Amino acid sequence: MNLNMQKVTEDLVIWIKEQLKSSGGNKIILGISGGKDSSVAAALCALAIGKENVYGVLMPDGIQQDIEYAHTLVETIGINQITLNLENVTSAFKDLLNQAVDEDFVEDITKQTSLNLPPRVRMTLVHALSQSINDARVINTGNLSEKWIGYTTVYGDNTGAFAPLAGLTSDEVMDLGIYLGLPDFLAFKAPSDGLTGKTDEDVIGFSYEVLNKYIRTGEIEDQKIKEKIDHLHKINEFKFKPIPSFPSPLPVIGK
């Protein structure tokens, strides 16, 4: 099932312009990891509103082995860029979490808590910067594959004013990056979160190739993997739904 990349690009550029205008913004800011999602999103935004209006923030947490990929990509796209190391901030948060353990507020700090902390700090920083850049909006760079299984952090990389890549699988995003003329290494760089030292596929336990085929065709050979994907999809749907709000018991007339 192949996409017409020219049409997809043209449609996305129009959509980004419309979403930005409806949000009251005229600039875009996003975190740049060096992976395909943030790179393709940045390139699309540069096409839509001009590279001078796109701001990329590189946010290693200490030493990030693949940070040079991120530098190469932002230089290729030509957007505004800054590198801000989060190590001191995440360390301060960990000190507070450990204090909660010491005072018996929680029994222990889980591995998942530690893994999700940097993405939340990253997006706090990006949103803070957006408020200091007039009319800038933060975009969500996640793709459909990650969304499908909930491989995203609530109030971390799952946030943003709008999500241009949310309808494209990981391999479709990669193909779009190649079409947009991004560096070739983008196609061969294994997706990773830049935090665990592992690839995404090592963490989730199956390949994106299998997942993407299942999403688009419903076909899958390994029943155990199918059950795992279905389970992940079901328990993570809440991440992509509006926050449930109790209806007002009184009339709302100010509309």
Score class of each variant (00 low, 15 high):
Gly56Lys: 00
Ser170Leu: 06
Asp184Gly: 11
Thr152Ile: 14
Ile63Pro: 01
Asp11Gln: 10
Ala42Cys: 08
Thr83Tyr: 07
Gly194Ile: 13
Ala163Lys: 00
Leu73Cys: 08
Lys51Ile: 07
Gly254Phe: 13
Asn88His: 10
Leu232Tyr: 14
Gln99Thr: 09
Ala41Cys: 12
Ile139Cys: 04
Pro247His: 14
Val40Ala: 07
Lys189Ala: 12
Ile79Thr: 04
Asp66Ile: 12
Tyr208Thr: 00
Val252Arg: 11
Pro60Gln: 09
Ala161Ile: 09
Tyr179Leu: 02
Lys228Trp: 05
Glu209Phe: 15
Leu165Ser: 00
Val252Trp: 11
Phe206Val: 09
Arg122Val: 02
Ile225Asp: 07
Glu75Arg: 12
Ile82Lys: 03
Gly78Ala: 10
Ser22Val: 00
Met59Cys: 12
Leu117Arg: 05
Ser192Asn: 15
Ile14Tyr: 07
Thr72Asn: 06
Phe162Met: 12
Leu12Gly: 01
Gln223Pro: 01
Asn4Phe: 09
Thr152Gln: 12
Ile178Leu: 13
Gly205Trp: 08
Phe105Glu: 13
Leu125Met: 10
Arg137Asn: 02
Glu103Trp: 02
Gly194Glu: 08
Ile109Asn: 08
Val8Phe: 04
Gly194Trp: 07
Asp171Leu: 10
Asp11Pro: 02
Ile253Gln: 15
Leu96Thr: 12
Leu180Trp: 10
Leu182Trp: 04
Val154Asn: 06
Asn85Val: 14
Ile49Ala: 06
Leu84Arg: 05
Arg120Ala: 03
Pro60Asn: 12
Tyr151Met: 13
Glu75Phe: 11
Val8Tyr: 06
Lys228Glu: 07
Thr76Gln: 00
Leu86His: 14
Lys111Tyr: 09
Ala100Lys: 13
Met5Cys: 14
Ile109Asp: 08
Gly56Val: 03
Ser38His: 04
Gly142Ala: 09
Asp230Phe: 07
Gly56Trp: 01
Glu146Pro: 09
Lys241Ser: 14
Asn140Glu: 12
Phe246Gly: 08
Gly24Tyr: 01
Ile178Lys: 11
Glu52Cys: 09
Ile29Val: 15
Leu84Ser: 09
Ala136Phe: 04
Ile109Thr: 12
Ser130Lys: 00
Gln6Met: 15
Arg122Ile: 05
Pro251Lys: 13
Leu12Tyr: 05
Lys111Arg: 08
Ser192Ala: 15
Asp184Lys: 15
Thr217Pro: 05
Glu18Lys: 01
Asn140Met: 14
Leu12Gln: 05
Ser22Glu: 02
Asp157Glu: 15
Ile79Trp: 00
Leu96His: 15
Pro164Tyr: 03
Gln64Pro: 02
Gln65Met: 12
Gln131Glu: 10
Gly177Leu: 03
Val57Asn: 08
Leu165His: 00
Val74Lys: 01
Ala136Gln: 03
Asp61Cys: 13
Gln65Pro: 03
Ala161Pro: 04
Phe206Ile: 12
Val89Gln: 03
Leu58Ser: 04
Ser245Ile: 06
Val121His: 06
Gln65Leu: 14
Val138Trp: 00
His71Ser: 09
Gly150Phe: 05
Glu201Val: 13
Asp222Phe: 03
Gly24Gln: 01
Asp37Cys: 08
Ile225Thr: 15
Ala70His: 02
Ser39Gly: 11
Leu168Ala: 02
Asp193Ser: 11
Glu107Gly: 10
Gly167Phe: 06
Tyr69Cys: 10
